[in-house]
Design a protein around this nucleic acid. Structure first.
Lengths: 245, 245
DNA sequence: CTATACAACGAACATCGTTCGTGTCAACGT
DNA sequence: ACGTTGACACGAACGATGTTCGTTGTATAG
């Protein structure tokens, strides 16, 4: 057990991290696991902006300095919570006949996890892709696409595109929800949509003819229609290129 | 001329902002334009993380408090610089025969603007879409897609997907560059790629067979190959759906 | 010439991430 | 059985951030 937390992080990046002996020390010692739990609790209840060293420490009933014995950075905490999120994902056994549905399902799981923790995708976008748990998800998606007969290069780039889109999409939704916290709906809140439409309608007609005309389309997208649409765009085309080239 | 900067922002959101009388006040008064220039200079030279109220004020040779007479927030400055970036984009006259190339070109312009100001896409991802200059770009892209015969609903959602992807892609590249600042290459730095490949190779073979086998593909993508690939995925499929449905 | 309005500023506040030095308690060696 | 050791936890503090308050200077209106 290295005392240096940097070595701990390096160890976490390496092989299976030896599910670290949950021996119940007499009175609640601070562990990396408890820090991760506390951080996720903060994000789930107050959003990612409220995730500070102090708020995490407060959940654990201590001060911020106590965390630095187990964690290098705040960035380290970000990595921990994203890793935990990825752990929760269920990766299916690749089925060549159902690769499209399987990939969509994994992306939807990731999307819902991100949405459960508002704003957390900002951490995902800023993270290094070397985390083991994240790599596990990438491996799972790669396996699905390869089983579907997609060329390795295409599959690799498609996974990158999908990951980026899921993060950006959920970030956008989380921001919109923060503006109208009362709606837990998935898409744009009705009143916010009305405000948007009226603002579009108030634009100068000579400069914004199309935006005015199609304000309804621009603000539409109930449920995850927009999400499904974009995933469909990408996946359909992967299928196209499966045999050709 | 309202004294309240909030009213100024509201005014900026409204009609053509009356190219605001560049009368050269005798000795360099602080204006919104100069603040925007200073902010962009800071981001271009030191990156988005260095964009603070104090750094902007320092470029203007004053203290942070002086900015709040012209600007509501730091978020307001973010909005200003993103708006300025969008102003620089050249929107072509829609040509039904070349809609695909035209959209690709606009996205590439946006990408290069974002890359000129490292990390600035974080501001773009966190921004409201009500800014006039941003709406102008949206209008331009919408016009191109509609001229290409694409269904309005499809066009609207595709623009959303494209914008999100460009922001996320450039953010990822900016972060990678900050890790290896000496390379101004567009893709993954050679040494970083080697490090990535070797790290992939060191993964446990039973859990990461595909990642190990296709490490080369996963880390490939010189130039903007990855970018062009994803845009192609989306655009090709738009063409598909142009006539059908 | 005086009064008024407003841009500009210095100082300060609250909060953030992070570090330093000290305490404190359990396990170990002799 | 006792003293030592060492890792862990913590309080206090530092620098930096966004933002606000009250004052100062100056240019224009009366």
């Amino acid at each position: 057990m290295p005392a240096d937390p940097k070595q701990r992080r390096a160890a976490r990046h390496a092989q299976p991290p030896t599910p670290p002996a949950p021996k119940t020390g007499r009175k609640a010692p601070i562990t990396v696991t408890r820090i991760t739990d506390a951080a996720l609790e903060v994000v789930a209840t107050q959003g990612y902006d409220a995730l500070t060293m102090r708020s995490v420490a407060a959940v654990l009933g201590t001060g911020p300095a106590s965390l630095y014995a187990h964690v290098v950075n705040k960035a380290d905490i970000d990595e921990l919570i994203i890793g935990r999120l990825c752990t929760e994902l269920a990766l299916p056994e690749p089925d060549p006949a159902r690769w499209r549905a399987q990939i969509h399902d994994v992306c939807a799981q990731l999307r819902d996890q991100y949405l459960k923790y508002p704003g957390i995708s900002r951490a995902a976008l800023a993270m290094v892709v070397t985390n083991l748990d994240v790599l596990r998800v990438n491996e799972g998606m790669l396996a699905i696409l390869l089983a579907g007969g997609i060329k390795p290069q295409t599959a690799a780039w498609a996974i990158d595109a999908l990951s980026l889109y899921v993060s950006a999409y959920t970030l956008e939704i989380s921001l919109a929800r923060r503006r109208n916290p009362q709606d837990d709906a998935v898409a744009i809140a009705p009143d916010e949509r009305n405000e948007l439409v009226s603002r579009f309608a108030a634009l100068p007609p000579d400069q914004f003819p199309q935006t005015r005309r199609y304000a309804a389309e621009l603000t539409s997208g109930t449920g995850h229609e927009r999400f499904d649409f974009t995933l469909g765009l990408i996946l359909d085309n992967l299928a196209e290129r499966r045999s050709s080239r």
